[in-house]
């Protein structure tokens, strides 16, 4: 491990972090957050977050537990407001339009979400799970649905494993397969952005690797924001990394820079494993 100026020994072998972010042509910011603050009752969970998320990139949000990273993620697709007594201020723009001035149902169709624990609908078959979003959105043409289900499962790299058991229950799958089923379910409604809230934290290393591999594929079509506790994962998959601490965005930069030469002391302490 080489010594980089301004860094202590990092947890990750820096040389393994691919050069990314720089080469990505950033012509469009998909999501722009302006002065976003979110509250649970009187407790402020995030404070004045300003961040721009480029189209077709993967942005990782890292930070210790309780730093507000999930809250920020959930305020992008307006899931934060579903909890009693929550409040949000500031603006979140999707393609320049404030998501808080649009019907949340429409917003959530454009901004899909994958949760920490796989949560397929247990009463539905694998096929119906993927079709659920379409049907709720008013698509009832069978042929159309079947096509989209197949395409989504292929995109989620699950098709080959389940194509012969589409009518079986989704909860019979392994944890990793269930999570990919949830990804397929999110893809089926054809979102533009996919939010992932620690999507691999409940999975074993092999299933995690599959999900990460999948992310690279999905990046070509979608913009992905991923919250993760796992710094190696953030380093491996993301183009940009945002470091949250105590409800504030401390640093946001190209991933390689965050992990090799962060400009803030707190970021450095965190990525070198001194706290968190």
């Amino acid at each position: 491990m080489r010594d980089y100026p301004g860094t202590r020994q990092t947890l990750i072998d820096i040389d393994t972090i691919p050069e990314k972010g720089k080469g990505v042509p950033v012509d469009h910011n998909k999501i722009v957050a302006e002065n976003v603050s979110a509250f649970f009752g009187k407790v402020q969970a995030i404070r004045d977050i300003q961040i721009s998320i480029p189209e077709n990139s993967i942005v990782a949000i890292i930070g210790p537990s309780g730093c507000g990273k999930s809250t920020f993620l959930r305020s992008i697709n307006r899931m934060h407001e579903l909890v009693h007594g929550t409040r949000i201020t500031g603006k979140i723009l999707l393609d320049g339009e404030d998501v808080y001035s649009i019907d949340p149902v429409l917003i959530r169709k454009k901004i899909g979400m994958v949760f920490q624990k796989p949560n397929p609908f247990p009463t539905m078959s694998i096929f119906d799970n993927v079709a659920a979003g379409l049907r709720m959105g008013g698509t009832h043409d069978r042929k159309n649905i079947a096509e989209i289900v197949e395409r989504s499962l292929q995109q989620a790299a699950l098709w080959n494993e389940v194509k012969d058991s589409l009518s079986k229950s989704g909860v019979g799958l392994s944890g990793g397969q269930q999570q990919r089923l949830c990804i397929a379910r999110a893809l089926a409604v054809n979102p533009e952005v996919i939010l992932m809230d620690e999507p691999a934290s409940a999975l074993d290393p092999i299933a995690t690797a599959k999900i990460e591999e999948l992310l690279f594929e999905l990046k070509k079509r979608y913009t992905i924001v991923i919250v993760t506790h796992n710094m190696q994962q953030a380093a491996r998959v993301s183009d940009y990394t945002a470091f949250f601490y105590m409800g504030e965005l401390i640093e946001y930069d190209v991933t390689k820079k965050i992990f090799t030469a962060p400009s803030m002391k707190q970021t450095e302490d965190y990525v070198t494993g001194r706290f968190g």
Binding site: G112, M113, F115, K117, F121, M136, V189
Partner: peptide, 15 residues
């Protein structure tokens, strides 16, 4: 009913 179920539905753009 686990919150994750309702949230899964809502996140898909359900009413």
């Amino acid at each position: 009913v686990p919150r994750s179920q309702t949230e899964a539905a809502l996140a898909l753009g359900s009413t």
